[in-house]
Amino acid sequence: MFLEVRVKNCFVFKNQIVFTLYPLNKTTAIYGPNDAGKSCLIKSIPAMKDILLNQRFELKSNLFSNSSICELGITFLY
């Protein structure tokens, strides 16, 4: 189980965002206004899985950033 997902300069996220999950909660919801990046956050999770499994993955850097480097991070419970 992972506790935290971090994404920077990937899809719509120019600055780093941190999505924290709490291990005692059985349900997690992602909500917010339209065009806030909910779908982009969900798209980054399978990309992280593919990286960990050494499989092909596809990421797009932020269009408005000068850097083409996407930064992803996961914090695991164990």
Score class of each variant (00 low, 15 high):
62 N>L: 10
64 F>Y: 14
42 I>Q: 06
1 M>T: 08
68 S>F: 08
8 K>D: 01
55 Q>D: 14
46 P>C: 07
29 A>I: 11
47 A>Y: 00
72 L>S: 04
45 I>E: 01
15 N>Y: 04
57 F>W: 02
77 L>P: 01
36 A>G: 06
34 N>C: 03
38 K>D: 06
62 N>Y: 12
38 K>V: 06
18 V>M: 10
34 N>K: 10
51 I>Y: 01
69 I>K: 03
64 F>D: 12
26 K>S: 10
67 S>W: 05
41 L>H: 10
78 Y>S: 08
49 K>N: 13
21 L>K: 14
41 L>A: 13
31 Y>D: 02
63 L>F: 12
10 C>D: 00
11 F>L: 09
77 L>F: 08
60 K>H: 13
69 I>S: 01
4 E>S: 07
35 D>C: 05
10 C>S: 05
12 V>W: 01
74 I>A: 00
13 F>D: 02
74 I>F: 07
37 G>W: 03
51 I>E: 01
40 C>H: 14
74 I>R: 03
8 K>P: 02
33 P>G: 09
28 T>F: 11
48 M>R: 09
53 L>D: 12
21 L>N: 12
49 K>T: 10
57 F>A: 02
17 I>D: 09
52 L>Q: 15
18 V>A: 09
70 C>D: 00
18 V>N: 12
45 I>P: 00
76 F>I: 05
21 L>R: 12
56 R>G: 13
27 T>Y: 15
68 S>D: 13
9 N>S: 04
31 Y>L: 03
59 L>F: 03
73 G>V: 04
22 Y>G: 12
6 R>I: 06
11 F>Y: 11
55 Q>S: 11
62 N>S: 14
16 Q>V: 00
9 N>I: 00
14 K>C: 03
46 P>F: 04
20 T>L: 15
8 K>V: 02
18 V>D: 07
3 L>N: 09
29 A>L: 09
44 S>K: 10
30 I>W: 04
22 Y>F: 15
6 R>D: 05
41 L>P: 10
27 T>F: 15
